[in-house]
Amino acid sequence: MSQVRRRWLLYLLPLPLVPLCLLAGPAAGLSAGKVLAWGLGLLVPHAPDPTLDEPLLRTILWEVRLPRVALTFLVGGALACGGNGLQALFRNPLVCPYILGLSSGAAFGAALAMTTLWLPVQLSAFFFGMVAVGFSYFLARAQHTVSVVSLILSGVVVGGIFTALLTIVQFLTDPFKLQTIVHWTMGNLHNATWEQLRAAAPGILVGVMWLFLWRWRMNVLALGDEETRAVGLNPTRERVLVLIPATLAASAAIAVAGVIGLVGLVVPHMVRMMIGPDNRHTLPASFTFGGAFLLLVDTLSRSLTAFEIPIGVFTTLLGGPFFMYLLKKARVGWEA
């Protein structure tokens, strides 16, 4: 088997998880076996199961599980790709999509919308997430150049400012809205609908496709500024051209799903350990593995109990120990 084919097989390896996750859910009386039997029955003629409420099953699969599974996969893929892009940009494996204040800005935007009631939550989260990253960038810009260190520092400062603003909003709001804000900041996909998918998909897909097209240049950027100049590229311009799609994809994801931690940090590492540090290959793999990772975690979070557990709790509880294991087991970084 050629290397290219093997690589494509690896990219597509997590995809069978998508239909499998459609089988799982919290609905008692709709076991995975029943759903599977019904699905197979669509392909092969069969005697109908009299205990199965078929219209309800169709509604649950089509209106509840499918948009959620699709949205979760896209969000996971977007966060992982964003993390991959920014790790290449900053030449730092500890970077995640939230490094430039994106999560703080988005959380402030969402909280503001929840408190004031006249702002749409998703739009506000997306807008303030982008504003935070924009501030970080322009704060770091001096004499037409942007150094990596000043960008990270300005990201820390802007993130801190938006966190303070978020605290003010939380401080002034009532306990019920506060509960919702906290829930949002822990990540939630329970409101997934086709409308949300339609709202988030363009930003995510444009961002991811852009990064995919730019994956060659990300390799050059990862070598350093001098090397980038040596091949005739302007490092500052290239950084912006990676920063924009990474932020766009991650912002669109956060706007619909809240702040979900660790995906953008852990998944690119996992991928690099499997196929090496070449961004041409890690980027598509990050998308499918990121999507699959979040899908797996969300399936757990929605199936274990009758009530929803915020997905951010699970990504941290599962991703954290796994990342620690990776750290102990192998050297995590560009050399992996």
Binding site: G25, P26, A27, A28, G29, L30, L56, T59, I60, E63, V64, R65, Q179, H183, N188, H190, R302, A306, F307, E308
Partner: peptide, 17 residues
Amino acid sequence: AGIDQEHLVVNLENVLL
């Protein structure tokens, strides 16, 4: 009533059931 929580977010599947 079967859920032992004062305030919770439920899965839509359960509401449908």
